[in-house]
């Protein structure tokens, strides 16, 4: 029998197993969260949005074409933001309380799954839900605009066919071009992008709240309070700009008003991509910090 060498001893040692961060596990949990929302018929809320869109496109035809288009944009962007907010807050607020109440969290965390992977998966599932909702609402919004464009252009073309005056024909031609340019407004894409960034941040804030509390009603209430504060914080910062303490305290609350560009769109103001980029970056940093804070709380939480 040979003496065990250092090499043999090393070979005889049991293999050390390591479980690193896994994107696949995050994706699995995220996909399951999304499936849950779809099968629990969360998207039924979009039927109500569709009715809102149809209503906005069908009424107020006595206004000028420009006013009608502005109305649709203003009304639909507002509805998009409200419905998206409902999905983001209510959809995220119940994620962790449901997992704890149904004890499904035990079966997941009893597998080789890191708590951060679980939390991030839940958050990503919520963000996917928001993204798909926004895409579907944007499609309905675009359809409403296209429908309105078709009607306005048809009306203008009919009038153009009935008139023999060259000046009026030129004026109507210009009107048709203006309708098309107002409908194909690139600012709308920027507005939806900013709404998405805002909703992703709101979902992260709601997730952070739900790591502290197990009550869904509490989570929803606090999240809506943060939403209101976030829209008022811009004004509050201006009011208390001289108070250092207030300034620091207010810095903790995200300025959600900065994500809102609907007023600029209605007024016809240009929204530079630089501004959009800066606000999205602001949202991303806030979101990352909020998710990190949620992880900090959740990693020590007793389940």
């Amino acid at each position: 029998m040979t003496e065990p060498t250092q090499k043999n001893i090393a070979a005889a040692k049991p293999k050390k197993e390591w479980v690193g961060f896994s994107v696949r596990r995050v994706a699995t949990i995220g996909e399951n969260t999304f499936t849950e929302a779809v099968r629990q018929k969360v998207y039924n809320i979009l039927i109500v949005f569709a009715l809102v869109v149809i209503a906005s496109a069908s009424f107020f035809s006595e206004f000028t074409f420009s006013e009608q288009l502005k109305f649709i944009k203003d009304f639909c962007l507002g509805a998009l933001s409200v419905f998206g907010t409902l999905i983001a807050i209510v959809g995220t607020a119940q994620l962790l309380p449901n997992e704890v109440e149904n004890r499904t969290i035990y079966t997941i965390l009893a597998k080789p799954v890191r708590r951060f992977e679980f939390l991030l998966g839940k958050y990503m599932g919520s963000v996917l839900l928001i993204f798909v909702s926004l895409v579907m609402m944007s499609i309905m919004f675009s359809a409403a605009l296209a429908f309105k464009e078709h009607r306005l252009v048809s009306d203008a073309s009919r009038t153009m066919g009935n008139t023999s005056r060259v000046e009026e024909k030129q004026e109507l031609q210009q009107q048709i071009q203006q309708i098309r340019s107002e409908v194909l407004d690139p600012n709308l894409v920027k507005a939806v992008l900013l709404i998405f960034a805002k909703l992703a941040l709101l979902a992260a804030i709601t997730l952070l709240i739900s790591t502290v509390s197990t009550s869904m009603i509490f989570n929803v209430t606090v999240a809506f309070m943060v939403l209101i504060m976030g829209h008022l914080v811009g004004t509050a910062r201006e009011m208390w700009s001289s108070n250092t303490w207030a300034k620091w305290l207010l810095a903790l609350i995200p300025d959600l008003g900065s994500f809102n560009v609907a007023d600029n769109i209605v007024l016809g103001n240009a929204i530079p991509w630089m501004h959009v980029g800066a606000v999205v970056l602001y949202g991303l940093v806030y979101t990352a910090c909020t998710v990190a804070a949620a992880h900090f709380v959740f990693s020590d939480r007793e389940i």
């Binding site: 696949r24 596990r25 099968r39 004890r103 499904t104 035990y106 997941i108 009893a110």
Partner: peptide, 29 residues
């Protein structure tokens, strides 16, 4: 937890998944 399987008391699981989907979910984890 690499080599551990756990059955909690009165398990509920995800009601919206089928039996096969449930096992697929945990297998992928």
């Amino acid at each position: 937890r690499l080599h551990v399987g756990f059955l909690p008391e009165n398990p509920y699981f995800y009601k919206y998944l089928t039996g096969a989907e449930t096992l697929e979910f945990y297998g992928r984890l």
